[in-house]
């Protein structure tokens, strides 16, 4: 009795939620990758990369990913090679001591939009656009939060005083964000007939960025399934063996 009462009290305690920030809580979305057997939608991944490539990549780097990693979203080696070759990569120095540049190859990391942090800040009114490789893992409720930010721009209410070069977004801490609303209807042309609106762009790019932060998710879940399946049977067998070994022991 007593134990149960304490347990209940503790659970009631744990369920209380505390919010320190004045930002609104991102609405909960249904993502294909969230359930136990959930996988990434390959088409959404590729559309999401297209959105990143054509929109986000103007300011945001994706430093931890190499072009070759894009095989994971279903790109062929030829597509990857062509994508990589679009960019010039700095690779050491020439014999004359000048910076040596060559076209990118699949093994190169995705070329950043700015040469360094200072350049990135200088081009963005002093704000540093964060690297997106791990952005979903680096935010609480990552996919929901990111989707909320991308779709949460609005005209500021009258009482809100925006700072210089700031934009109203009710999901961002302090409700002001330096990033200008990045997505507009029709700005990216999808070839597969998917609607080209902000909502769809946001969903696709969030799917892509979730994959970018957790590319081994599918491998993890499928390995996990095999391991758990085997382990449950093994544990059952160990349980019966234990019972049998102990059958002669009486209290």
């Amino acid at each position: 009795m007593f134990k149960k009462a304490i347990l209940l009290m503790f659970l009631a305690f744990m369920s209380l939620q505390v919010f320190a920030s004045d930002a609104e809580h991102p609405p909960k979305m249904n993502w294909s990758f969230q359930s136990i057997f959930g996988t990434y939608d390959r088409a959404a991944l590729q559309r999401g990369f297209q959105v990143y490539h054509e929109v986000c990549a103007a300011c945001h780097s994706l430093n931890h990913l190499a072009y070759r990693h894009l095989a994971g979203i279903g790109f062929t080696p030829e597509t990857i090679k062509a994508l990589a070759a679009e960019k010039e990569i700095r690779d050491g120095f020439t014999e004359e001591g000048e910076i040596f540049k060559r076209p990118g190859i699949a093994a190169d990391h995705i070329a950043p939009p700015y040469i360094n942090e200072s350049a990135a800040k200088a081009a963005n009114n002093g704000s540093l656009p964060p690297d997106l490789s791990l952005i979903v893992k680096a935010r609480a409720h990552g996919p929901d939060y990111l989707h909320a930010i991308l779709t949460g721009y609005a005209e500021p209410p009258k009482e809100v005083q925006l700072g210089e070069n700031m934009h109203y977004n009710k999901y961002f801490a302090g409700r002001q964000i330096a990033m200008i609303a990045p997505l507009h209807e029709g700005m990216v042309n999808y070839t597969d007939g998917t609607p080209t609106n902000v909502e769809q762009y946001a969903k696709d790019v969030v799917t892509f960025l979730t994959w970018a932060g957790d590319p081994k998710m599918e491998e993890r879940k499928s390995t996990g399934f095999k391991v758990m399946f085997f382990l449950i049977i093994l544990t059952l067998f160990m349980f019966f063996t234990k019972r049998r070994v102990w059958r002669n022991i009486k209290d």
Partner: peptide, 16 residues
């Protein structure tokens, strides 16, 4: 049978 199966599965698990 029980002992052998359990031991064999345990060995497989350890190897894996």
């Amino acid at each position: 049978f029980l002992y052998l199966t359990t031991a064999a599965m345990g060995a497989v698990a350890a190897g894996a």
